[in-house]
Design a binder for these strands. Structure first.
Length: 255
DNA sequence: ATGGTGGGTTCCCCA
């Protein structure tokens, strides 16, 4: 099974990229973030025409997550159990085949010390609590998406410039580590220990041509999923050219 | 020195 995560930064704006990408990479399951669209306005048809079932959990303007799958999508979970109606739509769980997916769009946090930063740390703690309550580590479980946090300095193009900056602060990294300590493996890192693998490059300042990137999109796998995982790669080519998202897709093979 | 670009439905906010 080929699975992938991609922050598309508006599913409607990205359709001219997303449809050919699905044709090219043919993932069995794709989890997308930042769809930025209400469910009733989600552009389902061009994706269904590619042979995908889909579930979406979105809102106007901000956030929004969706799962596309070439097989039946079951046991769909929308948001945290204690979310109100007006909560950010950042979390979507489902089962496809024998794999349990949890698609996450972690809050950006804007700036270390800000109200949004505290919201981000709190959201990561709630996610850990949700895993404890509702997920079985004995399953093939994959928690994947845009975590907006680097694990360590290998994920950062200029670690000194980014020291204690957003995506890289110690408190964010500890929150991400506590999440992984549920028993999840950072699949890309275990297969590729070298520094300099990134998934996001700012649209501003020509960051991509200079390879000024961060690795903030992750696939965190339970032991069973990790054992089945034979490859993980960043589809860096998808970040090239006009009309690209600021994130590249991350793809993994599960045997 | 607070720049720059892209997306949304904005008269600015968010990433």
């Amino acid at each position: 099974m080929r699975i992938a995560t991609w922050n598309v930064n508006s599913v409607r704006a990205r359709l001219p990229r997303l449809v050919p990408w699905l044709e090219r990479q043919r993932p069995d399951v794709l989890c997308i973030q930042e769809t930025k669209v209400r469910d009733e306005e989600f552009p389902a048809e061009p994706l269904e025409d590619q042979g995908y079932n889909l579930v979406c959990f979105g809102q106007k303007t901000y956030n929004g997550v969706a799962i596309l799958a070439r097989h039946r999508i079951e046991a769909v979970v929308r948001g945290f159990p204690d979310d109100g109606e007006d909560a950010d739509r950042r979390l979507l769980g489902a089962i496809v085949g024998d794999v349990v997916f949890l698609n996450v769009y972690v809050p950006n946090g804007q700036e270390v010390g800000s109200a949004k930063y505290r919201y981000k740390l709190d959201w990561l703690a709630r996610l850990r609590h949700f895993l404890d309550q509702s997920y079985d580590l004995g399953e093939k479980l994959v928690v994947l998406g845009d975590f907006n946090v680097t694990f360590d300095d290998r994920d950062v193009y200029d670690p000194e410039a980014w020291r204690e900056q957003i995506h890289c602060s110690l408190a964010e990294r500890e929150a991400l580590r506590r999440l992984a300590e549920f028993g999840l493996h950072d699949a890309l890192r275990e297969l590729h220990p070298e520094a300099g693998i990134y998934t996001w490059w700012d649209h501003r300042g020509g960051a991509f041509p200079k390879d000024h990137g961060l690795r903030i999109d992750h696939l965190l796998m339970s032991p069973k999923a990790r054992k089945a995982c034979s490859a993980v790669f960043v589809d860096r080519d998808e970040r090239k050219g006009k009309g690209a998202s600021d994130h590249a897709p991350v793809v993994a093979e599960l045997d």
